[in-house]
Amino acid sequence: MTTKPLRLRELAKGEDRLTHGHRMCAGCGAPIIVKQVLMATDYPIIAANATGCLEVSTCISNFTAWKIPWMHSAFENAAATISGIEAMYKSLVKQGRIEDKQVKFIAFGGDGGTYDIGFQSLSGAMERGQDMMYICYDNGAYMNTGIQRSSATPFGADTTTCPAGDVIPGKLQNRKDLTRIMAAHGIPYVAQASPSHWMDLMKKVQKAFEIRGPKFMNVISPCNRGWRSRTDDAIKLSRLAVDTCYWPLYEVENGVTRITVKPKEKKPLVDFLKPQGRFKHMFTPENEWMLKQAQEYVDKQWDLLQKEAVFSGGEEKVEDKPEAAPAEEKTEVQ
């Protein structure tokens, strides 16, 4: 199958494979991500979904927002569940009982369902070489159960299980760098993406679908509830996450790291932190050290990533916000 061109006007004529009528909060980032993922390709897709906001809000009683075959079974096992579905597909195709329609298999999981409780099942599926793509929508906490800390929660954040108090000012640990951990699995394709950079995200999905074997993509997913921000700033914040290098956009393809979008000018981290209530306490004089420490961590990680890109032989493609202009010509990819 040829990769479809990413022209907005052409894309807009397509059918939504996740429908309206879902019950995610107004302004949630997760459905934007799912919609972009499903839109990137015309291949048939079958998805598994870990328990969490996305799952409970898209399939309640006899209302499902999914137009693709979709399965939720539990919280920690989206990767194992999709493995079973994929195995059955392979078996029936091999036996000639169904036709091979080049179905693509996706597992969606939140950060809790991916970084934490579902990590073992994810790691296992990747090691087995299951032909699937795992997509984590990372909103940095267990949102569905009321904003508890996860290992994806960034340093400093105020959550319901690490509330910013007088003695402990929020989460004291840095977030686990899952994207790099997945890259360390040595699987053919790993990427980090953001819904603000839709074209970058969709290109990554397209690329992943042309690769056989396990793929992993980590996508930042603004949650105005948990981040205590405005309902209209999901895209703005995910863009700031990229521009501050808090959430660099890159891919690791067969061991070669490539930064896919390099901000023209790296913005200070506070631009990303300030609009979010979960970091409010860091802006008091006594917690100034936290801002400093958070910035230092981002700088260090960004530095490392750039070195790794050079070291691994990945060319650094400078492609600042390709969607900033509506020009259609340059948006076509092959």
């Binding site: 399965m71 079974s73 539990a74 096992n77 079973g84 059955m88 087995r128």
Partner: peptide, 28 residues
């Protein structure tokens, strides 16, 4: 046999994979 074997990393995943496979539509 024609069986596709999923050599999982735990029994939790074994049953999860069986559930996925059975829902997919076949003998498990």
């Amino acid at each position: 046999v024609d069986t596709e074997m999923v050599l999982v990393e735990s029994e939790h995943s074994a049953m999860s994979a069986c559930i996925g496979a059975a829902a997919a539509g076949g003998r498990v």
